[in-house]
């Protein structure tokens, strides 16, 4: 088929941040499907909770303190997370490196406290369906926490190599910030569901 030149795109940039970049949209897509998974697991919990009038099935209430500490750590981590995003947009290597190290540590900290959250549930997964569901909810979020912390650490190492000096890498840092927001935000309803909803009944 014959062709005629219509536009020249030689001056277009080679990377973009946020919604300009396809990776941002891909991350959003995965958030949507994982968020759907969270919503369905939470829905299954509420379905069983409304089905059984004596829900919690005479299990002891969970100790909320480890969960509350995790929540506080996660919420606090949003501040450096968004400072990091600003530096990534400016492609400022020094502050981005510091920010990535800080975010790796702030990812590991709730993971350590999370270790103490499971026994604080005061029930095992195989005791009854209530125990199964809160282990599932906590396990689902822990999986996300582990994978995102792993991802953050690898990216931190990458930013200390020569591969870091690339617009694309700074875009990756921005997407990592975006995904951490998701990990924090999904925790809030799960936290309420595990520790506070059973106390209502």
């Amino acid at each position: 088929m014959n062709q005629r030149p219509a536009i020249d795109l030689a001056d277009l940039p080679t990377f973009g941040h946020g919604p300009r970049s396809p990776t941002w949209w891909g991350t959003l897509g995965f958030m949507a499907l994982e968020g759907m998974g969270f919503a369905l697991a939470a829905g299954a919990y509420l379905y069983l909770a409304t089905l059984w009038p004596n829900w919690r099935l005479s299990a002891p209430a969970p100790n909320h303190w480890p969960g509350t500490i995790v929540t506080l750590l996660l919420v606090v981590s949003l501040v450096p997370n968004h400072m990091l995003n600003r530096y990534a947009k400016q492609c400022a290597m020094g502050p981005v490196r510091i920010g990535m190290v800080v975010m790796s540590l702030l990812g590991l900290a709730p993971l350590i406290v999370r270790w103490f959250e499971f026994p604080a549930l005061n029930i095992y997964w195989d005791t009854n369906a209530y125990g199964s569901m809160i282990w599932v909810l906590l396990g689902l979020h822990t999986t996300h926490l582990i994978t995102d912390v792993g991802d953050t650490i690898v990216l931190t190492v990458l930013m200390f190599t020569r591969h870091g000096y690339s617009g694309r890498r700074f875009g990756d840092v921005g997407d990592n910030v975006f995904y951490w927001d998701f990990v924090v935000l999904t925790w809030i309803p799960i936290y309420l569901l595990i520790y506070w909803v059973p106390r209502l009944g």
Partner: peptide, 21 residues
């Protein structure tokens, strides 16, 4: 697979689960 493998009771009505779920 959790019900089958590690003994959760999500679909087991005898322990507070539900098959219709």
């Amino acid at each position: 697979i959790l019900d089958r493998l590690v003994g959760t009771h999500i679909f087991n009505p005898a322990e507070g689960g539900d098959a219709l779920l």
